[in-house]
Amino acid sequence: MMRIVLFLATNFAILLVASVTLSLLGIGTTDGAGGINLTGMLIFCALFGFGGAFVSLFLSKWMAKRGTGARVIETPQNRQEQWLVDTVAQLAKQANIGMPEVAIFPSRAPNAFATGWNRNASLVAVSEGMLQRFSPNEVKAVMAHEIGHVANGDMVTLTLIQGVVNTFVMFFARIIGSFVDRVIFKNESGGIGFGYIIATIFAEIILGILASLIVMWFSRQREFRADAAAAQLAGAGNMIAALEHLRAEQGIPVEMPGEMVAFGINGSLKNGLAGLLMTHPPLEQRIAALRAGNFR
């Protein structure tokens, strides 16, 4: 799935640069009397919070291509590429979405992802390793999973959630920064103090990490929904077989850039406390859900 880590990294970078710059300029902080204008600050934070999320969304397809080295199939060069394009076209028609761009990216590990700002202007990509070692039915199921993400509007929904998260991270970070500046650094001038800038940046980093747990939880739930879509589009048995094959190859290193690991169908698989920071549920849970018939 085209999701999370690269999207979050882009969003966080935009947000942090904007926040630092605006804090240094004294924009969106206090009113003329030195008190916090909560309404004005909330509006300010919402504008930049949602702005950062939507910029990340619109850049997502370009960054995914660049990050993975994906090669878009403009004209199929062989039977395998023709089959892949035809399969995606069939699945897209079944899901009632526009034909996505289809790409292959260089990686020995079995993986695939989808991204794009619009369900009718998306990109789906599969690794060379998956095409080489997975059966046609398994690859079709994986492509159906990625088409499911697109058809379900996961990236747009993620963007809206990230916008809300950004807004409140910026908002509460500024309240904390103002408190630290006035109470600890004893700044009573009503202007921007050094304590405010440092505390706000530090609070944004900490709150941003905590808030990312919400986005990660959302990502894990959407994986189950994409599996359900794949079961409907390509058959539950084929999707289970694909996930079983992924589980059998877990020892193969995921040769995607670090910021892209969460994008793929073969995502992180940890349990326990570490699982809160994972973008994908364990494969065992996904297989069990499909076998239990939780795909309708």
Rank of each mutant, 00 (worst) to 15 (best):
I161F: 13
I161L: 15
G163T: 02
G163K: 05
V164I: 14
V164W: 13
V165W: 02
N166V: 03
N166A: 03
T167P: 14
T167H: 12
F168M: 02
V169S: 03
A173V: 03
A173R: 01
A173H: 09
R174A: 01
R174Y: 07
I175N: 00
G177H: 05
G177K: 02
F179Y: 14
V180C: 03
V180M: 09
K186D: 14
S189W: 08
G190S: 10
G190L: 03
G191V: 01
G191K: 09
I192D: 00
G193E: 02
G195I: 05
Y196L: 15
Y196H: 10
Y196D: 03
I201Q: 04
I201V: 15
A203Q: 00
E204G: 11
I205C: 01
I205N: 01
I206Q: 07
I206E: 10
L207Y: 02
L207K: 02
I209D: 07
I209F: 14
L210A: 13
L213M: 09
V215T: 13
M216W: 04
M216T: 05
M216C: 10
S219R: 04
R220L: 06
Q221H: 15
R222M: 10
E223T: 03
E223K: 05
R225H: 15
R225Q: 15
D227T: 08
D227I: 07
A228I: 06
Q232I: 09
A234V: 04
A236Y: 04
G237T: 06
G237H: 10
M239C: 03
A241Q: 04
L243M: 13
L243I: 10
A248C: 04
Q250N: 12
P253F: 07
M256V: 14
G258H: 08
E259I: 13
E259P: 06
M260T: 01
V261T: 06
V261F: 11
F263L: 13
F263W: 10
G264W: 02
N266C: 05
L269C: 04
L269K: 09
L269T: 03
N271A: 12
L273N: 09
A274I: 06
G275L: 06
G275H: 11
M278T: 07
T279C: 11
T279W: 06
H280F: 09
H280V: 02
L283E: 06
Q285Y: 09
R286W: 08
I287E: 04
L290Y: 10
R291G: 03
R291L: 08
R291K: 15
N294L: 10
F295E: 04
F295G: 06
